[in-house]
Computed example of a mutant assay.
Amino acid sequence: MLPIGVANKAEASNCCIRSVLSNVTGKWRMIILLALEDEPKRFGDLKRCIGDVTQSVLTENLRGLQRDGYLTRSVNPGPPVAVSYELTPMGQSLVELLKPLVFWTHEQMEQVKTLRMEYDRDQAS
């Protein structure tokens, strides 16, 4: 079994598995990584591609992904100034691991919807 169990909060904060997974499995971070799969994108293009993310949330998540080495940020001084984001080789390897999960979720969605409805119905009675 993978070493995912910890005895206390101090151990949890030093667990490399928890540290990495908590930084890449958040909703927005996975979507950002997947949005950058094919090509670098400017901030506005990335925001439009994702759609329902706020500017501040996108900025915060981009910084976190950059900090951990999954993407790079490039500034072209312009005019106009253009900021773009691109996956690093590590980010590309992570996206390759995420893609099967994305395909799996797409394939399972109808079953999940059905099971959710059954659960909700059972809870209501």
Rank of each mutant, 00 (worst) to 15 (best):
M1K: 06
M1Q: 13
L2K: 14
P3W: 05
G5T: 06
G5L: 12
A7L: 04
A7M: 00
A7E: 10
K9E: 11
K9R: 15
K9G: 03
E11G: 00
A12W: 14
N14T: 06
N14D: 11
C15A: 08
C16Q: 06
I17R: 10
I17H: 09
S19T: 07
V20K: 00
L21C: 13
L21P: 02
N23K: 15
V24G: 02
T25H: 02
G26H: 10
K27R: 05
W28L: 07
I32F: 06
I32V: 05
I32L: 04
A35L: 14
L36I: 01
E37V: 02
E37I: 02
D38Q: 15
D38V: 02
E39C: 01
E39H: 10
E39S: 01
F43D: 00
F43N: 06
L46W: 08
K47S: 10
R48L: 09
C49H: 10
I50F: 06
G51L: 09
G51R: 08
D52V: 03
V53C: 10
V53E: 08
T54N: 07
Q55D: 14
L58R: 13
T59G: 05
E60K: 11
N61T: 07
L62K: 13
R63N: 08
R63E: 11
Q66C: 09
G69M: 10
Y70P: 01
Y70I: 01
Y70C: 03
V75R: 10
V75L: 08
N76G: 00
P77K: 03
P79K: 04
P80M: 02
A82E: 15
V83L: 03
S84E: 13
L87F: 12
T88G: 08
T88Q: 15
M90R: 15
M90C: 06
M90Q: 14
G91A: 07
G91E: 12
G91T: 11
G91Y: 14
Q92S: 14
L94P: 07
V95C: 13
V95H: 14
V95R: 11
E96T: 05
L97S: 05
L97Q: 12
L97R: 15
P100V: 01
P100G: 02
L101G: 07
V102Q: 14
V102T: 04
F103I: 03
W104A: 07
W104K: 15
T105N: 12
T105W: 13
H106C: 06
M109E: 05
E110F: 01
E110G: 03
E110T: 09
Q111A: 09
V112W: 12
K113F: 08
K113D: 12
L115Q: 09
L115D: 13
E118V: 07
E118M: 11
Y119R: 14
Q123M: 13
